[in-house]
């Protein structure tokens, strides 16, 4: 996990401190996944519950407008970051309009 080089005592901070905040983003967890949540942008009502409940976080609110086939215009989209999504399915379960499909990952 992660690709930071293994370095010696001369180069590491004292006392085991980690000085780069939030650097776990350099260590993707997407390969933990067996099932993959896929948001159907057509069905999605942008309630943001998937974003709220995601434990990673691996669901992002993106400033990307979306117009559905029925003509409804959304100012933003909700997308899954597959680099970190562990495929727990909480978003799938909690989606009130069943807009998230849960499909087996094919690698």
């Amino acid at each position: 996990m992660g690709d930071k080089p293994i370095i010696g005592w001369k180069s590491i901070p004292l006392g085991g401190s980690i000085t780069e905040p939030g650097n776990s983003i350099q260590r993707p967890t997407g390969d933990w996944r067996v099932f993959k949540p896929v948001i159907n942008q057509e069905k999605c009502i942008r309630c943001l519950l998937c974003w709220i409940y995601c434990p990673e976080p691996s669901i992002h609110i993106i400033d990307k407008p979306y117009k559905t086939l029925t003509g409804r215009e959304w100012k933003f989209s909700v997308e899954v970051n597959y680099s970190f999504c562990k495929g727990c399915g909480i978003c799938v379960e909690e989606c009130p309009v069943k807009a998230i499909d849960f499909i087996e990952e094919v690698r």
Binding site: N23, S24, P55, F84, K86
Partner: peptide, 23 residues
Amino acid sequence: RDELLAPGHGLCGGCVAGTIVRL
């Protein structure tokens, strides 16, 4: 919107502690 807990942590998939800490 700001996320002060970064992803890439090693909590089990679906760990609700992740949700609690994030919020």
